[in-house]
């Protein structure tokens, strides 16, 4: 609510107020540099805002101490853009790490869980592989297996399709849909990939220059008369924002 944040003097998020519905897949949409990844980092408690609050089950996480915030984070799984796997560990150990760290489960139970998670993302048999031995798509799926290690209530994806071929990206979208349907997870996906948006989104939040310009269903998004939204949906490039004279003055340093 009223979320504002700055990088130095630059205001990145300009008093954002949105609600993310439970048990649905919410897509945070917007062009490059609109603040969507920054917004995600705030929701998962990695960044603190300049002002405003982030309520999860009615509790504001922005004022929480690290220990309290860690309890909230245990309920979250995050698939970062680069998958963020530990290169010195096998896939099995990468997935087992949060389970070993945060539960008192027996090692034999953990090993079965790890095999289940890797199978879920189509990586059965790759337990002993290291991240460097995997393709980009496989790393993403391994990252997802680790994000799901603790059966999170909230699953966050930062640009899941980035760097993936269309078939692999569609497979990941399919998996996101199944996770929502079966486990009733609350899923938040940051992306600018329109095919993904139309496949997985129940709810869309669109950011533009640090402001929310839309929140609602896919049908409402398509029906929106907002020219910025229409430009995005129709993949139209932005108009030149200054005249040739202005451009000359900029590059001439006047």
């Amino acid at each position: 609510m009223g979320l504002r944040t700055h990088y130095g003097d630059r205001e990145i998020l300009k008093s954002i107020s949105v609600t993310i519905p439970r048990g649905k897949t919410t897509v945070i949409l917007g062009g490059s540099g609109c603040g969507k990844s920054t917004f995600l980092k705030h929701i998962i408690g990695l960044l603190k805002p300049t002002s405003g609050s982030i309520l999860i089950d009615g509790k504001d996480i922005t004022g929480m101490k690290e220990a309290e915030l860690n309890e909230v984070r245990k309920r979250m799984g995050v698939l970062f853009q680069g998958a963020a796997l530990l290169n010195s560990m096998t896939l099995a150990d990468n997935v087992a790490l949060p389970i070993r760290e945060h539960t008192g489960l027996n090692e034999s139970t953990i090993q079965i869980m790890v095999r289940m998670k890797l199978d879920l993302v189509g990586l059965s048999g790759f337990e002993g592989f290291y991240p460097s031995q995997l393709s980009g798509g496989m790393k993403k799926r391994a990252g997802l297996a680790r994000a799901m290690a603790l059966d999170p209530e909230f699953l966050f994806f930062d640009e899941p399709s980035a760097g993936l071929d269309p078939v692999t990206a569609a497979g990941l979208d399919e998996l996101i849909l199944r996770l929502r349907n079966v486990f009733r997870m609350t899923i938040v996906v940051v992306t600018h990939e329109l095919p993904s948006v139309f496949m997985i989104a129940d709810y869309v939040i669109m950011l533009d220059a640090g402001e929310v310009i839309f929140s609602g269903s896919l049908d409402d998004l398509r029906a929106s008369g907002n020219p910025r939204i229409q430009m995005f949906l129709e993949r139209k490039p932005e108009q030149e924002s200054y005249s040739p004279d202005d451009y000359f003055r900029i590059i001439a340093g006047e």
């Binding site: 539960t103 489960l105 139970t109 079965i112 869980m113 059966d151």
Partner: peptide, 11 residues
Amino acid sequence: IDSSGIATFVE
């Protein structure tokens, strides 16, 4: 039931 419960029954 979460995955630890299912894993326990598998075990």
